[in-house]
């Protein structure tokens, strides 16, 4: 099967007055219609990797790659117009905190139907029906009311479900979920993940799940990339996590408390400057 996404030697660099900062330093992977987790701590370049794929890195950031292709099409040489068409229809991204990622002065309904109306030229009624159906699919009980609400009137969990609905409306082939639950309560987190999981399976999407939470990613994905300081340090199947070889991954795993495990203080991660090389 032809891969959905091919990434080879992806680099993202920022030229700041204080010098050049490299956020992503040569990341490579391929993705089919599967669920790939990218794990790393803050600043490891995982978010930038996701944004670079969608070509959302704003100047002064610069993106380079030997190959960055979606469905066989080179993304880096694509004109902005073509990229926009891809972003709207085939690529989508769920961001971290619905408090910031939804436009505060637009109703949920307008934000949900905006793409359908502008991009797909649907009539107001048809767009509205699609949006309501999608809200039902993310298990929002009172979609009509939510359509007329403003983002600040929604809870975090509701907001994130609206965000997921908004991104899945055009039925994309690839969804990037960038820490989709880290701003939510633990109780809500499970529910949002269940909904996301259901929709991804049902529609057969490719998924890139970006998180700092290793066990969560392992449970949720087929394959895991571990990033450190802008590089992939380890790539392995989620089921083989226990056999991780890289000291960073092993260190991360050791930091987790386990029920029935020893009661002593958890070991802290000891970093080796060599990992960043």
């Amino acid at each position: 099967m032809k891969p959905l996404l091919e990434v080879e030697d992806l680099k993202v660099a920022f030229d700041t007055p204080g010098g050049r900062v490299e956020a992503v330093r040569g990341v490579s992977f391929t993705l089919g219609r599967e669920r790939l987790g990218i794990v790393g701590e803050s600043g490891s370049g995982k978010t930038m990797t996701g944004r670079a794929i969608l070509r959302l890195v704003q100047p002064p950031g610069r993106v380079t790659a030997k190959r960055l292709a979606f469905d066989g099409r080179d993304l880096l040489s694509l004109p902005e117009r073509g990229m926009r068409a891809l972003r709207g229809r085939r690529l989508a991204m769920v961001m971290q905190d619905p408090k910031y990622s939804l436009n505060p002065v637009m109703t949920v309904g307008r934000q949900l139907t905006e793409g359908l109306r502008r991009r797909d030229r649907l009539s107001a009624g048809a767009a509205r029906r699609r949006a309501v159906a999608m809200l039902e699919a993310v298990q929002i009980r009172d979609p009509e009311r939510v359509m007329g609400a403003y983002p600040h009137e929604l809870s975090g969990g509701m907001g994130q479900r609206v965000m997921i609905a908004m991104m899945l409306i055009p039925e994309p082939d690839l969804l990037i979920a960038d820490e989709p639950t880290s701003a939510l309560d633990v109780t809500v987190e499970a529910e949002v993940l269940r909904i996301l999981d259901g929709l991804v399976r049902e529609r057969g999407l490719g998924l890139i799940f970006i998180s700092h939470d290793l066990p969560l990613v392992a449970r949720f994905c087929d394959r895991v990339l571990v990033m450190y300081a802008g590089r992939v340090v380890e790539s392995l199947a989620a089921s083989e996590l226990e056999q991780a070889r890289h000291p960073y991954t092993r260190g991360l795993l050791r930091c987790l408390p386990a029920v029935g495990g020893p009661r002593g203080p958890l070991p802290t991660l000891r970093r080796d400057p060599g990992w960043a090389e």
Partner: peptide
């Protein structure tokens, strides 16, 4: 702000991102 990125992810043209989404919040 992040909602500007959201609008771009939705494939909205740049003029709409700037003049509708961002300016809508600036009007306040």
């Amino acid at each position: 702000q992040e909602y500007v990125t959201t609008a771009r992810v939705k494939g909205m043209p740049e003029w709409r991102v700037v003049w509708v989404h961002a300016l809508g919040n600036v009007l306040v």
